[in-house]
């Protein structure tokens, strides 16, 4: 497969977008949005990662096999998050035994 040639302009545009998003991350960190701060920071980071993968790493113009590999990596990340959260989201389900409530509640947040 011959390499796809991309105009320099695209690279500069993506670079500008990455810098802009970095500035946005920095700004968002200074505004108190409670729990949303983390969500927004992660969303911006995901956008930046996608831009790098799609344009700088040419995933947008790659063959199906390469694209499947990239999606597989995301799928594995989903496994990591889902099964780890299966622990964190269900820890509180177990009722604390009488007399242990104080000490166990400390870890059941």
């Amino acid at each position: 497969m011959s390499p796809h040639i991309i105009p320099k302009r695209t690279y500069f545009l993506i670079f500008a977008a990455l810098i802009g998003l970095t500035a946005l991350t920095t700004y968002a960190a200074t505004v108190d949005l409670g729990r949303l701060n983390t969500v927004i920071a992660l969303l911006i980071a995901a956008c930046k990662g996608s831009l790098v993968a799609l344009f700088f790493m040419h995933l947008r113009w790659s063959g199906r096999l390469t694209q499947i590999v990239a999606v597989a990596a995301l799928f594995w990340l989903a496994i990591l998050l889902a099964l780890t959260l299966s622990d964190y989201r269900t820890r509180r389900w177990t009722p604390a035994a009488e007399g242990w409530a104080t000490s166990s509640n400390q870890f059941n947040r």
Binding site: I79, S86, R89, T90
Partner: peptide, 18 residues
């Protein structure tokens, strides 16, 4: 192999449901 790691953690404080 990627779906089983929590079996190392049954007595670690991991949720019993997990």
């Amino acid at each position: 192999s990627f779906l089983v790691w929590g079996h190392h953690m049954f007595v670690s404080g991991q949720s019993v449901y997990a």
